[in-house]
Design a protein around this nucleic acid. Structure first.
Length: 103
DNA sequence: CATTTGACTCTAT
DNA sequence: AATAGAGCCAAAT
């Protein structure tokens, strides 16, 4: 963990399957809630799940994902999350009320 | 070395 | 309630 990115990856890696966490929440866990944007940026720069970083489990605070910038598209993210047991709302958002990552 | 930008979030209108 | 704007910090150029 030389940089903030490594720390972010490590925390995201600890997200259990079937659970999702918001960028801001991850940043807050790292002790720096102001770096919410960097958490997302780290995901973009991260090698992805190939390195054990389930970026698809990291979503907006509302439970929505950034359409167009996801690892393979919002549809793929939704498919992966559903495969892990994450509930989705009719709006296409993750059910944060039931699948929000609890520490 | 200074400027720009970004998978975000909050506050104000 | 919904939309718009500002703030934040660090890396990339």
């Amino acid at each position: 963990m030389d940089g903030f990115f490594e720390r972010t990856y490590d925390l995201v890696r600890q997200i259990p399957a079937g659970r999702v966490a918001s960028y801001g929440q991850v940043a807050r866990m790292l002790g720096e809630p102001r770096k919410a944007r960097f958490v997302g940026f780290a995901m973009h720069a991260s090698p992805g799940m190939a390195a054990g970083v389930p970026c698809h489990r990291v979503v907006f605070k509302d439970g929505s994902v950034c359409s167009g910038f996801a690892f393979g598209g919002p549809d793929a993210q939704r498919g992966l999350l559903e495969a892990e047991g994450v509930s989705f709302l009719d709006d296409g958002r993750v059910d944060m009320g039931a699948c929000a990552w609890e520490t």
